[in-house]
């Protein structure tokens, strides 16, 4: 039923799985082999990925199919991309700062509005939880508000942490640590799931002792 390619592929995958796992015992020739293969293959993979999911559809196809303004304007990022390669020629290497500056500018410009509109404002809004009585939910809300406020106080840098600010910051670090513990405990499941996934591959696909 299985093609030869499938069988070879599965055994190759099995070998590489065990080679990486062997790192847990100690660094060894199998891990070194798998590691270098991984770095090489994945670099090649991303090169192909960028060529066919990025440069081709966005630059080449746009240039070929569009007309007028849209056709020529797309050459600007194309030119910036080429300028990036000026790094190969030490005399004009400084030109590469232009595309880098562009990249940084994009991140900075987007970062400002997305952080404010997408995070700060809705999250502040969600913390405005007036107490409606003396229920368990109200107590939880109160703790939530105290947690947010004191955590923010912990990140107050320009005053010594003394007095009210110091007290708040101390409570804040308590919340932070409880939060880290909770995340750690919660995340354990994700990590074990991955191991289950690999073992399932070994038992089911490679050794076929599990249906």
């Amino acid at each position: 039923m299985d093609s030869m390619g499938m069988i070879i592929g599965t055994w190759l995958a099995g070998f590489l799985t065990l080679a990486i796992l062997s790192f847990l015992y100690k660094d060894n020739p199998f891990y070194k082999l798998a590691e270098h293969l991984y770095v090489g293959v994945s670099a090649g993979y991303w090169l192909i990925y960028v060529a066919f999911f990025d440069i081709k559809p966005m630059l080449i196809d746009t240039f070929m199919s569009e007309t007028g303004f849209e056709k020529w304007i797309i050459l600007i990022p194309g030119a910036l991309g080429l300028i990036m390669l000026s790094r190969w020629f030490p005399k004009i290497a400084w030109l590469s700062r232009w595309p880098i500056a562009f990249t940084v500018g994009i991140g900075a410009g987007l970062g400002i509005t997305a952080n404010l509109q997408g995070y700060v404002l809705p999250q502040v809004q969600a913390t405005i939880l007036p107490l409606t009585g003396f229920t368990v939910a109200d107590l939880s809300n109160l703790i939530l508000i105290i947690g947010v406020v004191t955590t923010l106080m912990y990140f107050y840098f320009s005053k010594p942490h003394k007095g009210l600010l110091g007290g708040g910051a101390k409570i804040g670090i308590v919340f932070i640590m409880v939060s880290f513990g909770a995340s750690f405990g919660y995340t354990l499941m994700a990590r074990i799931s991955l191991l289950i996934g690999r073992l399932y591959f070994l038992f089911h696909d490679l050794l076929r002792i599990l249906d």
């Binding site: 952080n115 995070y119 703790i143 939530l144 508000i145 947690g147 955590t151 990140f155 939060s179 909770a182």
Partner: peptide, 18 residues
């Protein structure tokens, strides 16, 4: 824990980081 203290600290850290 996930809903209240965990969330509160995450929110505080993220507002600061934002």
């Amino acid at each position: 824990i996930m809903d209240v203290p965990q969330l509160a600290a995450k929110r505080g850290i993220q507002i600061g980081a934002a």
